[in-house]
Design a protein around this nucleic acid. Structure first.
Length: 570
RNA sequence: CGGAGUGUGGCGCAACUGGCUAGCGCGCAGCGUUUGGGACGCUGAGGUUGCAGGUUCGAGUCCUGUCACUCCGACCA
């Protein structure tokens, strides 16, 4: 391709709102343009890379014998309603009506559709496991898209689905995709950590997020320094050691307490005991409109997702002052027991401390020497608190948790019977009975993958594409093109490269200076740069330079072809 | 959805407390000189200042509404 004909020019100035390098460079180099928040066009250079990522994923899916197909992206709304997914995705879903006033959902994910599709063939156990996938646009009306391609409202996704007879067969299939994802991340030159995560609106139980560590990532996750296990914030078990095991239980007592003691910090000032010594109560209103009191140690914080999960709720909101009035209490005065009209949920940490302070605050008194199991007890006791950076790992109890920031590159889900039961997506087993299929789903976003590669492969001048996803193999710069001899040499090299099957971007501009061409080449980031100029010809040929290295060398035109081909071998 | 902020040629910005024909740089078009790290000169095109309303002799500037966009948070793959 001649640069002079390329649609999409480079730009000197960065967009003022770019936070991520990928946003800045992809924009400046002319790979992408925005139409509205979270909706982007890929220009010719951008689409070249996009296409390569697409093909690599497709090849890998084929390699593990997943079969490609496609379902419509207008989904009959009834399919979503069967699993209440229309509500779980809630405001993130988009809908359209046709001229019969039938409502369709724009595909946000396709588990439901795939289950319906499989059902059409009444599969037998002999057909299992069945592994299918598609590439299709996903529509999610995200409330806050960000980071250009990182979080968008419309994107191409490779989504794969497995249908298995039982858990055992499923685990094998899951492992296959899991391994495949680890392999793909490596192919894309991304270091992805599989992180145990929550399934969220997709439904189901366990999932792995493949996280790529990035300082500006919007997800945090924890990795244990010893056992190397990793969890995201919502899944990470919080370690709760016994803090004062040898202490003797003292008799429960109501004691005088000055009125100014309101917060945890006030408690520390007054009693001069560490934070973990106090009882803390936080009130929430569930998506079922009921009130819940989370009871925990003063040094910990409630994790709303964990709390919602153990209560089987979609979501929780902090209680308002009005809600507290209904409980006949107010902020700072919530008791650890006896509040009518709310359900208590305790954190397991409560069982690991003796002689708590607090729990029954009144204007001038509070209780001390409070012991869980003796003075109060809850029906619900679970891990409902946030893990924190530096905590001991709850799993191996040897290492410390390190909190990291990252961006989710891919996600694998174990969704069990979540869709197959309500949608009656069954198979016939050996004894002729119908049983629900055990499902899994696996997704990678193409645009995000592209952005992540840039995020991890650039310098201060621009992108440095890994060779398997570069938009062109070589970037040929022609300087002094007004000189006939140079021009002839450059044109003939361009032709030869093309004939040899090397994808080449040829900067044939007559009205640009050398500096401009160099700067553009660095920005666009094609791994190999060739240069023909009066000087290079005088020195005996063509200059060859790698984007990732500083030095260049002069090669004869005979050697150039081979060197370029060799660079892209394997 | 809560908080903060911004809307002025394609991009980045300016226009002090309301005041003349809304400027500058980049980019774009033409001509010429240049050509190994974003060159220079001259000429030119491109704007109902996001939109609607209001206050005023006069609004890019003040007020109200609305829309769009960005950032932080909540949420989410």
């Amino acid at each position: 391709m001649r640069y002079s004909r390329l649609f999409g020019k480079t730009q000197k100035t960065a967009p003022s709102d770019a936070v991520l390098s990928s946003h800045k460079f992809l924009y400046q180099a002319g790979f992408i343009r925005r139409f509205s928040t979270g909706r982007w066009s890929f220009l010719p250079l951008g689409l070249k890379v996009w296409q390569k990522i697409f093909s690599i994923i497709e090849k890998e899916m084929d390699a593990i014998d997943a079969q490609r197909l496609v379902v419509p992206f207008l989904h009959p709304i009834e399919i979503w309603k069967k699993t209440n997914r229309d509500q779980a995705f809630g405001e993130e879903m988009l809908f359209v009506n046709d001229h019969y006033d039938q409502t369709f959902a724009l595909g946000a994910t396709a588990e439901g559709m795939m289950a319906e599709l499989v059902k059409m063939f009444s599969p037998s156990y002999k057909d299992l496991p069945l592994e299918i996938y598609q590439f299709s646009s996903k529509f999610r009306d995200d409330k806050r898209p960000r980071g250009a391609l990182m979080r968008v409202r419309e994107f191409m996704m490779k989504d794969a689905y497995s249908f298995c007879a039982d858990k055992k067969q499923f685990e094998k299939s899951y492992q296959k995709f899991y391994n495949s994802y680890s392999k793909l991340a490596k192919i894309f030159n991304l270091k992805a950590t599989p992180v145990l995560a929550d399934s969220g609106a997709i439904g189901g139980a366990v999932s792995h997020e493949f996280m790529v560590e990035t300082e500006k990532g919007d997800n945090s996750y924890f990795v244990c320094s010893h056992c190397k296990k990793a969890w995201n914030q919502e899944r990470c078990p919080a370690h709760k050691p016994h803090l004062n095991k040898t202490e003797k239980e003292k008799p429960f007592k109501i004691t005088d307490q000055p009125q100014w003691v309101m917060t945890m910090e006030d408690n520390v000032r007054h009693y001069e005991e560490p934070l973990w010594r106090y009882l803390k109560n936080v009130v929430y209103k569930g998506s079922d409109k009921k009130l819940y009191i989370a009871s925990l140690r003063g040094d910990q914080d409630v994790n709303e997702t964990k709390l919602a999960r153990c209560l089987g709720l979609h979501s929780l909101d902090p209680a308002t002052d009005k809600d507290l009035e209904k409980l006949d209490t107010k902020h700072g005065y919530v008791h650890s027991w006896g509040q009518k009209g709310a359900t208590y949920v305790g954190d397991i940490g409560l069982t690991k401390v003796k002689n708590f302070i607090g729990g029954q605050k009144e204007d001038k008194t509070d209780s001390i020497n409070v012991n869980y199991g003796r003075d109060f007890e809850y029906k619900h006791l679970a891990d409902i608190v946030e893990a924190k950076d530096g905590d001991t790992c709850a799993e191996c109890k040897k290492g410390n948790l390190e909190e990291k920031k990252g961006i989710e590159w891919g996600h694998t889900f174990n969704i069990g019977h979540f869709y197959s039961k309500p949608q009656e997506c069954n198979f016939t087993n050996k004894s002729g009975q119908e049983k629900p299929l055990w499902m899994g789903s696996y997704g990678i976003g193409i645009g995000r993958c592209l952005a992540l590669i840039v995020e991890k492969h650039h310098d201060d001048k621009g992108i440095i594409w890994p060779k398997n996803v570069t938009p062109y193999h070589v970037h040929l710069l022609g300087l002094d093109l007004s000189n006939e001899k140079v021009k002839k040499e450059a044109e003939s090299l361009y032709k030869k490269l093309k004939e040899a099957g090397i994808d080449v971007l040829y900067d044939d501009r007559l009205d640009s200076t050398a500096g401009e061409k160099f700067a553009d080449a660095d920005l666009i980031g094609i791994p190999v740069r060739l240069l023909v100029s009066q000087r290079s010809l005088k020195e005996g040929g063509i200059e060859h330079k790698l984007r990732s290295q500083k030095d260049s060398q002069i090669l004869s035109s005979e050697k150039i072809l081979k060197t370029c081909q060799k660079h892209y071998e394997k």
